[in-house]
């Protein structure tokens, strides 16, 4: 794998391979000294054209734990403000000798466009409303470990609730959950659903109360205030009444059900209960798993040294696989 741009590019086998790799990274992160020399001498550039403290910090930590050198390229202090084009920025940094760019951009497709201008690997850290693949991978890893689903999500019912239309997280999550075999239901007011929803591999509902008792995973999206300005939702209070996780709804969740949120949360809006009091809340697990998943992605792109094939991705326990090593 050369780039990670779009969850739609990965099949179930490749997703499982990255999640298996994440198990190793979790073990490293639990050590007293959580650092391995795997990516010594590799340079990773964090190129964030949109504010994001948590995702950038997560990638930064991941790269450092693998001993890569990290450059953080803050757009506010860069030549972009002097009118340098995206292409010139990429070509200039590439000339310094870079192995990977981690890119966040407000325009959908920007990371894909950048692959045309550099030989380095590109990791999409969120582009417009389009994709956020590492978020989807860490969500899959969280479900896999919390619900003990190492082989796939067959039979799991996952509802994604909220502003689907403007959410790159929802787009990536739907593809990933679907690839792993889960049943996905989107719950949102019609104004917050994308126009092409009929082509997505999902069911659609406007009735959270009707299905909350049967869910294995309740995935809440952030309700952004600017949607009020655009009159897509009448009021935050009405949104909470219809689509928020209220104490009454939390009481109807199955005992094993997970409550997930990509952060940052709007307490009192989509999350109208204290997540610390929900046994199924995974919010902080998601953050911790984010570092491990991003380590797995960076190692796969920069360290594994070969194309991922059916042969190398198979997690065969056959000891004869180890024969020709030193």
């Amino acid at each position: 794998m050369k780039h990670l741009l779009d969850m739609g590019h990965l099949d179930a086998m490749q997703i499982h391979h990255l999640l298996d790799l994440t198990d190793h990274m979790v073990e490293i992160n639990q050590r007293p000294m959580p650092k391995v020399p795997a990516l010594r001498g590799k340079t990773v550039v964090n190129l964030f054209f949109e504010d994001s403290t948590r995702t950038r910090t997560s990638f930064d930590t991941a790269a450092r734990r693998l001993s890569a050198d990290v450059m953080n390229f803050a757009v506010s202090s860069s030549s972009v403000n002097k009118g340098e084009s995206l292409r010139d920025t990429i070509e200039t940094i590439t000339a310094m000798g870079v192995d990977a760019f981690v890119v966040r951009h407000a325009s959908s497709g920007a990371p894909h466009q950048i692959t045309q201008w550099t030989t380095a690997s590109i990791v999409n850290a969120g582009d417009g409303w389009h994709q956020h693949p590492t978020q989807a991978l860490l969500d899959c890893y969280t479900i896999r470990t919390r619900l003990n689903r190492t082989t796939g999500f067959d039979g799991l019912h996952i509802a994604i609730v909220g502003d689907i239309k403007h959410s790159r997280v929802a787009r990536s999550d739907v593809q990933a959950f679907n690839a792993l075999g889960a049943r996905v239901t989107l719950v949102a007011p019609p104004t917050l659903l994308p126009p092409d929803i009929s082509t997505w591999p999902v069911e659609v509902s406007h009735d959270l109360d009707g299905l909350i008792g049967s869910l294995d995973v309740l995935y809440l999206l952030r309700m952004q205030r600017e949607r009020m300005r655009d009159a897509l939702v009448p009021s935050l209070r009405e949104y909470t009444t219809l689509y928020g996780l209220t104490p009454a709804r939390a009481a109807r969740l199955q005992e094993h059900a997970l409550v997930m949120h990509p952060g940052p949360m709007n307490r009192g809006v989509e999350m109208a209960v204290d997540p610390a009091e929900l046994p199924g809340s995974t919010v902080l697990h998601q953050v911790a798993n984010g570092v491990a998943v991003r380590m797995a992605v960076l190692f796969e792109l920069l360290g594994s040294g070969g194309e991922m094939t059916a042969d190398t991705a198979a997690d065969s326990p056959d000891p004869s696989q180890a024969g020709p090593r030193s």
Partner: peptide
């Protein structure tokens, strides 16, 4: 012990970690 992340041929040949260090 899994030694995948300590190899000196990282990036040269495909490295497939075995099971997790324990």
């Amino acid at each position: 012990l899994d030694v995948s992340f300590y190899r000196d041929d990282v990036g040269i040949r495909p490295i497939v970690p075995g099971s997790v260090t324990d």
